[in-house]
């Protein structure tokens, strides 16, 4: 997995987001108004695509796409 792939998957998931707008430093909280719903979408995506479990608490600590990428890769290695 690389971060480009993760960014593409996130862009595909959020249909209102234009292609190319998600960057490693993009802050999730700027992607939409409804954080709780956004969190569920990201948890589901990561679980299905990478078989990695992230929680609501993880997401509260995560700010950017790069943070998410780091968390997911760390857990994939375990």
């Amino acid at each position: 997995m690389d971060i480009k792939e993760l960014m593409e998957k996130l862009e595909n998931e959020f249909e209102d987001v234009e292609k190319g707008t998600i960057q490693p430093e993009t802050n999730f909280k700027a992607l939409g108004e409804w954080n709780s719903m956004l969190a569920l979408i990201i948890i589901a995506l990561i679980d299905i695509e990478y078989d990695v479990k992230i929680t609501g608490d993880d997401l509260r600590a995560i700010e950017t796409v790069n943070d998410l990428y780091q968390t997911v890769t760390e857990r994939m290695e375990k």
Binding site: S36, L40, I43, K53, T55, G56
Partner: peptide, 11 residues
């Protein structure tokens, strides 16, 4: 608590 239900059930 939607997040807790979601976390729990998908696992």
């Amino acid at each position: 608590n939607g997040l807790d239900v979601f976390d729990f059930c998908i696992t």
